[in-house]
Amino acid sequence: MAMPTPQAPSLLLRGLHKTFAEVVAVNGLDLEVTPGECFGLLGPNGAGKTTTIEICEGLTTPDSGDVELLGLNWRTNAEELRQRIGLQLQETQLSEKLTVEETLRLFRSFFRRGITVEDSIKTAQLEEKRSARVGTLSGGQKQRLAMACALVGDPELLFLDEPTTGLDPQARRNLWDLLDRLKQEGRTIILTTHYMDEAERLCDRVAIMDHGRIIALDTPPRLIASVGGEHIVEFAATSHNKGANGAAAVDPALLTAIEGVESHRLTAGTHQLSVRELHTAVPKIFSVLASQGLHLDEFRTHSATLEDVFVALTGRNLRDE
């Protein structure tokens, strides 16, 4: 695989804007992805991830802004870029009546150089399904086939739009393993996802997008550290003398006053606290609740994730919409 020149970033976006009718899909986006990096675009529905990635893929022209891939741009080097990138779209239904092998042979024929159809079948672990019609494949197998189509040209730069959406946990992990291998081979990967755990597991750096902008960009551990507390405490409480709806009112000020509690949020009757040290904070939380005559229905803690980062940044849950 030909390596891009070390200085040139694999992807460079400057001041990207794209508006559809009245919807501002991408609103001033700058981004730089270095060669060999696995970069994640994260965000809720409608954040502008697909629009951004399709601008990178040369499928959508931005209203303004610059796009540079592998030191080339779409206006003058489209043909070469198409040969050197691989991609998977958010929604593509390949011809149902072709077999896996026929589909890959077709896609392979578009590339001047690349891996053999045989190897792409192996990479995607579709050996048993090689002569099966695409229409008979399961969702996960279809996704793997789409991945194989992205790989037949042996791309240096790979764009994957929600590669694991709709897969069962096992199939997701298989795909993660495949992506690990692709990373080890030195390819640059740019992917979008709704899953924070996926981004944490796969990506060297993550950009969190909302309303067409990048609202945070860093490595997953540093993003998580930026929330303040490393732990999240979630609980639901009811009063012994219940109110009309059963849920008890807790004065947030009392909670945030506890030493080590960084922030408080209430969503759908569940309180969320971000906490620095669990072992000191939790007993104090219990005593505050007891003093208020409250009864705990649920109590959970987990290590802070990118999800909590998103909540902290936007005040919304990632999958609220």
């Binding site: 040969q83 390949l94 896609f107 590339f111 189509c149």
Partner: peptide, 16 residues
């Protein structure tokens, strides 16, 4: 059919 299923888009995203 190919357009509706976004297959057309996938094809033009390749070097075809």
């Amino acid at each position: 059919d190919a357009r509706q299923k976004k297959l057309l888009k996938r094809l033009v995203a390749s070097p075809m």
